[in-house]
Write a protein that binds this DNA or RNA. Sequence first.
DNA 1: ACCTGAACACCGTTCAAGT
DNA 2: ACCTGAACACCGTTCAAGT
Lengths: 164, 164
Amino acid sequence: MSRREEILDAAERILSEEGIDRLSMRRLAEVVGVRAPSLYKHVADKAEVVAALQERGLRALAEALAAAPPRLAGLAGAYRDWALAHRDTYVVVTRMPLHRELLDPEVEAAALAPVMRAANGDHARARALWGAVHGLVDLELSGRFPADADIDAAWRAMVAAFEG
Amino acid sequence: MSRREEILDAAERILSEEGIDRLSMRRLAEVVGVRAPSLYKHVADKAEVVAALQERGLRALAEALAAAPPRLAGLAGAYRDWALAHRDTYVVVTRMPLHRELLDPEVEAAALAPVMRAANGDHARARALWGAVHGLVDLELSGRFPADADIDAAWRAMVAAFEG
DNA sequence: ACCTGAACACCGTTCAAGT
DNA sequence: ACCTGAACACCGTTCAAGT
């Protein structure tokens, strides 16, 4: 395993185990067992590390969605489940600037392919659907629903609207 | 005008004019004309500054939505327009941790009241709708749609789904 | 080829000291 | 009551120097 892979694996571990706030170049170096400046011999900057995490996250999300039942409710459920199980990764994938020039060009489309399929190839509808599932996940992750809110019911209402 | 108000006004100005990345206690102090430690005589910490910005943002959003045509398309359009016109404020309002204990308890509900009304008082439907409009805005603000995407069409598809 | 310490320009925050 | 400089524990990043 190259030093570079070692660094990216460590970054992935920090992200999922310690959270995004702890993902610093200094902490990353510490986990790898080296001083922070040494990282720059193997990655250009932190943005490159983040881009790698986004790529890995998109691949994992694509896999989870591809394995879900293709019906809308199943797909929406798989999307939500994956996001809740990988909160910090989901945030990195969707909220941080996407450096597309550092990304495998196919990986973004692959993650959205199941959504595209559920919308019968209608781009506008696929984006509306993606917005809806992403929005519900994002509000939940950001703690915008009151503690006693029935979030499952909100998901059912969303699915009903798009199936209507 | 109290020093505290002066500080919060300056924070609002930095947020909208220089962006969230420049909103630091040190920059804030500089704009107010004082050293950073002095701020702590007037606000407890940065979280309190952010909470004040969230409250002001929610109030402004509530106003914009209340002034919109109550039909779904008009409401969705007003939501999107406001978010795009106040990008950094929108991000602070929706993405940063919401310190509800520092917030006027009615302001959050006030912002969502028009959405609630559009859902005929159905909480689940209102949350699905909020998720959908927020999600589309968030993906657009995060640059997740390709440059040639017809985002207007995505909004129409979303409105159609919920009106269906 | 790889790693290091020192440095630079930043953060949020605390605190003793001054008025 | 308010403001200050100095300090602490952090950031990302650069660079000359060592092996």
